[in-house]
Simulated scan of single mutants.
Amino acid sequence: MIPYSVLDAAPVTEGSTPSESFERSLKLARHAEALGYKRYWLAEHHNMPGIASAAIAVLIGHIAGGTSTIRVGAGGVMLPNHAPLQVAEQFGTLASLYPGRIDLGLGRAPGTDGATAHALRRYFDGADTFPSDVEELLHYFHPVKPGQTVQAVPGAGLDVPVWLLGSSLFSAQLAGALGLPFAFASHFAPTMTEEALIRYRQDFRPSKYLAEPYVILALNVVAADSRAEARRLFTTLQQVFVSVIRGNPGLIPPPVDDIEAFWTPQEKAMVEQSLSYAIVGDAADVHEGIMAFAAKHRPDELMLSGTIFDHAAHRHSFTLAARAFTDNA
């Protein structure tokens, strides 16, 4: 059975607060743990009213502290926003508190707009130093050598699995060259999925971190007891993508009965292209869709995403998705 995991961004729905979002994320993580999901990853975003996962290390600690066995991690930390030493210290602390359960995924994008990226790291000129920043961060997890001037405390000598994340070919090639596991954002960058997988697997060099390539693919899944209800729930995510296109992202909206009245034909085409790797339907549809996706791309693991307004419906969607894996075991 292929491992299955959860990608969350601590969404803030209309009428709720970040505090309530964090409570819902913890409940979802506990639910996922009980259902056999392997990981629960959170994604760093900034200056987005509908996403509360800005202080990602703090939130990971909240989720890890409220669960027992599921791996918890960053999917990911946007490294251009941070000094590598600080990230090593933060995740060294998390790994010390929750041994054997913390993952560190690294992304090259800022996870926000240009003005906010400048506010986060005022003297940073861009992501061109990402490869060297990754190697510097990896170095801080190595055992301390005699005479080493700077070390991560805690962090040095700890086993913190580092992943590279990507939505293009750059990180796929870098992950392969460094011999690191790779997670690809196929849930919003579907057109690059196949080529990124090929590049990563072709360029992979065995390392002390990993003997063989290991890749996670992200997939949007919105499941409900009926196809009609699943399609209605899916309109929340469709509206979110339209708001990004329009340049006015806000709180996560409730579903609508008529999505066609909400978007323009051009917006519809753009959203449908971005969300072409989305499985929406009842239990049978989800089982068939997940198995077909896995058979086509042969990932080592799938990470499921899916923004749903109602928390009970969100939990139920992940329940139905889990059955797609366990029923095929």
Rank of each mutant, 00 (worst) to 15 (best):
K27S: 15
A175F: 05
A175D: 08
V240F: 07
N328T: 15
I63S: 02
Y98G: 05
K38W: 15
V240I: 14
G281W: 01
P265Y: 00
T93N: 13
L197D: 00
L251I: 13
L165P: 02
A278I: 15
A292L: 14
S317W: 00
P99C: 07
G126D: 13
V150F: 14
T17G: 04
L85H: 08
D300T: 03
L251V: 14
H187Q: 05
V160M: 05
R71S: 12
G179F: 05
H316V: 15
I290L: 14
L302P: 00
K27E: 09
A183K: 01
I63T: 01
L26M: 10
T112P: 03
A64H: 02
D310G: 09
A115F: 15
A29C: 09
M270E: 10
Q202C: 11
I60C: 13
V153R: 11
P181Q: 01
L304I: 13
S53N: 06
D203I: 08
A322R: 04
A211T: 11
G155V: 03
I198Y: 15
P299Q: 01
P265H: 00
G114D: 10
A127G: 08
G247Y: 10
G100M: 07
T112C: 07
F241C: 13
G66S: 09
E272S: 12
I279K: 07
P255M: 12
R101K: 05
V12T: 01
R121M: 15
S305H: 12
G15N: 02
L237F: 06
G107V: 00
H187I: 06
I245Q: 06
T93Y: 03
P143G: 07
G247P: 08
P255F: 13
A185M: 03
A230F: 10
A55L: 11
I259D: 03
T67N: 10
A292P: 08
L178S: 01
Y214C: 02
H46E: 04
A313T: 13
S25A: 12
P143N: 06
V271H: 00
M303N: 06
A329Q: 14
M1N: 09
F188R: 04
P161F: 01
A127P: 08
A261T: 14
P161H: 04
